[in-house]
Design a protein around this nucleic acid. Structure first.
Lengths: 340, 340
DNA sequence: CTATGCTTCGCAAACGTTTGCGGGCGCAAG
DNA sequence: CTTGCGCCCGCAAACGTTTGCGAAGCATAG
């Protein structure tokens, strides 16, 4: 702040007007000689452009907002890392905001980001501030939803292929011979919760197995959910031979629940999780998972946003598209064929 | 961006000058009547101040930068969450940047943040761009270092009490009767790596046990380090009876290494980790740890910065203080007395 | 030699605020 | 009724850029 060497100083040192200085540093707008000369002077003086003034004039800060529920969730973590890295490569800075899945906090966050005149927004929406977001998007600030769809309003969205992922996971277990497959899944108010349940159900039905609601436990994205679900499912007299934990926060609780019962994976019970968390690979036995592709999602979200940032021209709401990232089954060691 | 209702519009609607509008919205600078009247008008029009223009004039964006190495590390995660929450409560937004512990990337990051005219900076330094940071601090943009100390230059810093933490952990194991304690620790180039080793060593020597360098394995903050160290230490003929993993990234690798050897914790070997990671509590057996107080560190860092942000007056470099957060031993189930 | 075109640069306005300064007005005191 | 004092408010400058417009310089073509 003290070190405020401004364009005027550069201009003065170079004996030109402020405007030529500006153009020289922009490049290609002056003669080659003054261009290099002024750039050298600017470097010597340690000139750094004032982003505020520039943004005020050009109506473009190079900031984009990234709004997520938390950082404990592995998907959000890679989202944050990938988005930040990708956008930085294009000269954008990322403002990270955490909403704790709280609509009020989300509303405030969006407002503040709008005040900062961010150029764009990547958000995992709570589902409550649709009009606010849509207004932003209409106003020329591209908004890309990620991980969760906003049910109320049309916006560009990149999602995981949850129906297919859950389907593939369930079918894998079926192919191994399992017939009683317990499902621990997220709340049915969320897109992912619903879609993963439906994928599970479809796989069962295609295999000619009747869907049994008492085999599924839905809850919040927390370890406690996993523990509770685990206990509930294991206390049945016809204990499932496999558990599909389609909610990766709960996985920790499930692991604990299985240990409580002294059940060994995969000998006593097969275990399939959702999302590839860093620890899973190192776990013993290494956990099989269906990877929803958080990394790819993050990349696509960043790329889509970048595209719209660059083509400042047309933000055609009509084109509001929905992208799905393919899920991938990773077979490791936690599932085994059922012995008959 | 389209929705650009400016102060002029408010003034016009209220039939006053722009300056009165500004003052009315600021509050306390006009008559009570015009104040409420204009505030109502502003609300109706949906006026939102342009942070860029304001920042340009007042030389204060309400932005602070937060610079960390990554988000996989649990300390950084809580740092990000806590700092962002705390600063937001005071009206600041957080720009999150990730350096991957890479000095070049760090240099670029700091420069860009300075360009954005952030009001302050919280950073876990790589240790390489000291002059840049010091210049910022001198220039009136308070910089607070966290987690790591910057060896080269004096700055306000909040650290974990690593020497004491490692000492306490080691002594705990000693009290349980362990004599051969393997240590897996971070690189000796880092503050934490050195300090944790020295704490371990001091505890041993105070107990009258000769420090044995072959019992320590130092490596990067990665699971691979844990695995390698684990293998090395377990292959000794006089296998340690306890492992102190003073580097929480490595813990995952250690767990895997122990499983490989089919060693049970705590029956076959005691295990003490550093940092309380979310999974540890759920692990079976629940892992004992020395918690370095990442949460408290984050809070203190945020508070210190806030203090200096508010008292815009004096950034006395002389006061550059170093704060230490006490470590806390959490006894769970992974350590047991050695049977003689 | 004049007309024309291109390149290179300066002038000044603009972006949306905040704020020092001074003018107008009302009200109390003289 | 005048003077003085305070309270509100408007004028205008400033923050550091970018950019349209026009002027100057120079070369080339007619």
């Amino acid at each position: 702040m003290q070190n405020s060497v401004t364009l005027r100083d550069v201009a003065r040192a170079g004996k030109v007007s402020v405007s030529t200085a500006s153009r020289a540093l922009a490049g290609g707008l002056t003669s080659k000689s003054t261009e290099t000369r002024l750039q050298r002077i600017a470097a010597e003086l340690g000139y750094r452009p004032n982003t505020l003034a520039r943004g005020l004039k050009t109506r473009s800060t190079r900031l984009v907002g990234l709004v997520v529920h938390n950082l404990a969730n592995a998907s959000f973590r890679v989202l944050a890392e990938v988005v930040q890295q990708r956008l930085r490569a294009e000269g954008y800075q990322v403002i990270l905001c955490i909403t704790a899945d709280n609509p009020d906090q989300e509303a405030e966050t969006i407002a503040t980001l709008a005040d900062q005149r961010v150029d764009g927004l990547i958000i995992c929406p709570t589902g409550h501030n649709g009009e606010q977001l849509a207004a932003l998007d209409r106003g020329g600030t591209p908004v890309t939803c990620v991980v969760r769809r906003h049910e109320a309003v049309e916006m560009e969205t990149v999602l995981a292929a949850d129906p297919e992922g859950a389907f593939a996971g369930t079918r894998y277990l079926l192919e191994l011979g399992h017939r009683r497959i317990g499902l621990i899944v997220g709340r049915q108010e969320t897109t992912s919760g619903r879609e993963r349940l439906s994928g599970y159900r479809r796989a069962l039905e295609e295999a000619g197995i009747r869907f049994n609601p008492t085999l599924v436990h839905a809850g919040r994205y927390e370890p406690e959910t996993g523990l509770a679900g685990c206990r509930q499912l294991l206390d049945r007299e016809d204990r499932p031979t496999a558990l599909f934990v389609a909610n990766h926060e709960s996985s920790l609780g499930v692991l604990r629940g299985l240990a409580e019962r002294e059940l060994l994976v995969p000998d006593d019970i097969s275990l399939l999780c959702y999302e590839d968390m860093p620890g899973f690979e190192w776990q013993r036995p290494a956990l099989s998972v269906v990877d929803s592709g958080a990394h790819a999602m993050a990349e696509l979200a960043a790329d889509r946003l970048l595209l719209r940032l660059r083509s400042h021209a047309a933000p055609p709401a009509a084109t509001a598209h929905e992208y799905r990232i393919g899920a991938r089954l990773i077979r490791r060691q936690s599932c085994r064929p059922v012995v008959s």
